[in-house]
Amino acid sequence: MALVKAGVVVLDCVEPEMLAVFYKELLEAEQTDATANRVEIRGADGIRLAFRRDVNATPPSWPRPENSLQVHLDFVVEDLDEAERRVVGLGGRPLDTKDAAGPFEERGYADPAGHSFTLRRTSSTAPKQG
């Protein structure tokens, strides 16, 4: 048995309740725990995220170099356009919507508190035709 097991990814933010709602709706998750300074959710696929109150939290500035990317989340989606509409409808904002080269299509976003994340669509696993 492992001495240390993976726990939960925790994002610091000024308003954890509001940020939890964003991710809860985005991931169709359920709230599993809440205190005055922390809210935790679990997505249908088992991913666990928590949001911790830090009244001095400042969002990362990615893609600018100062205070840039500290950590980000990757989410896999089937339809990038539909997922983007959902993100924006929930209060997120696009950071970079250029198509990435290579086997993946991905787009960068910021959640309402400024944390960056990526929506990524993997290439089809269907066999090539012709």
Rank of each mutant, 00 (worst) to 15 (best):
Val39Cys: 00
Glu66Cys: 07
Glu105Thr: 11
Leu26His: 00
Leu119Lys: 09
Glu17Pro: 00
Ala36Ile: 06
Gly108Met: 12
Leu95Gln: 10
Tyr23Ala: 03
Ser116Gln: 13
Gly91Val: 04
Gly91Thr: 08
Gly108Tyr: 15
Thr118Asp: 12
Glu40Gln: 13
Val87Ala: 08
Gly43Met: 05
Lys24Glu: 15
Val21Ala: 11
Leu3Asn: 09
Leu19Asp: 00
Gly92Lys: 01
Leu27Met: 04
Gly7Asp: 04
Thr122Glu: 07
Glu78Tyr: 05
Thr32Trp: 11
Thr58Glu: 09
Thr97Ile: 10
Cys13Gln: 06
Asn56Met: 12
Gly102Ser: 10
Val39Asp: 00
Thr118Tyr: 15
Thr125Met: 00
Glu17Tyr: 11
Val76Lys: 15
Asn56Val: 05
Ala44Lys: 13
Ala2Glu: 15
Arg53Asn: 03
Arg53Thr: 02
Thr122Trp: 06
Leu27Ser: 02
Asp99His: 11
Pro127Ile: 01
Met18Asn: 10
Val71Met: 10
Ala6Leu: 10
Asp74Ser: 09
Phe117Val: 02
Ala29Glu: 01
Arg42Asp: 05
Ser116Val: 11
Gly92Tyr: 01
Gly46Leu: 09
Cys13Gly: 09
Val8Pro: 01
Thr122Arg: 08
Val9Gly: 02
Asp96Val: 02
Thr122Tyr: 09
Asp54Phe: 13
Gln70Cys: 08
